[in-house]
């Protein structure tokens, strides 16, 4: 299982703009490199990332070969209500990672 590091404030005031940071362990092998044996190294990348806030999609990214390994994505949202923020990364070779973080909005 790939490790992911998520940084979401545990508490926020209603209407506050919060910053969300995500870092995930992944080689992001481009598919353009040649290995020591002379053969192409097959592409192995994360191609999609989706973040949902209480089930509603708030951020999505499409990743490509040009993204460095261990992709770091950071974005902002408005703290609307208490609940759960989910993060899902999918990619080559059936790669899938899911993380969740709770937030209390008062």
């Amino acid at each position: 299982m790939a490790r992911a590091l998520i940084n979401v404030p545990a508490k926020a005031a209603r209407g506050e703009i919060i910053e969300i940071k995500t870092l995930i362990q992944h080689p992001m092998e481009t598919g353009f490199r040649v290995g020591y044996n002379g053969a192409m190294i097959p592409r192995d990348i994360i191609s999609n990332f989706v973040c949902a806030y209480n089930g509603v999609e708030i951020f999505r990214a499409e990743l490509s070969s040009a993204i460095a390994s261990n992709p770091f994505l950071t974005f902002t949202t408005v703290a609307a209500e208490s609940g759960e923020i989910t993060f899902k990364w999918t990619g080559d070779n059936g790669f899938e990672a899911i993380e969740t973080a709770g937030i209390t909005v008062a």
């Binding site: 490790r3 590091l5 998520i6 940084n7 940071k21 870092l23 362990q25 261990n70 770091f72």
Partner: peptide, 17 residues
């Protein structure tokens, strides 16, 4: 900033492993 923040420093993956 990347080094200072444990949720942005990729070296932390190795620390956790």
């Amino acid at each position: 900033a990347m080094q200072d923040d444990d949720s942005a420093n990729p070296g932390m993956f190795w620390v956790l492993d």
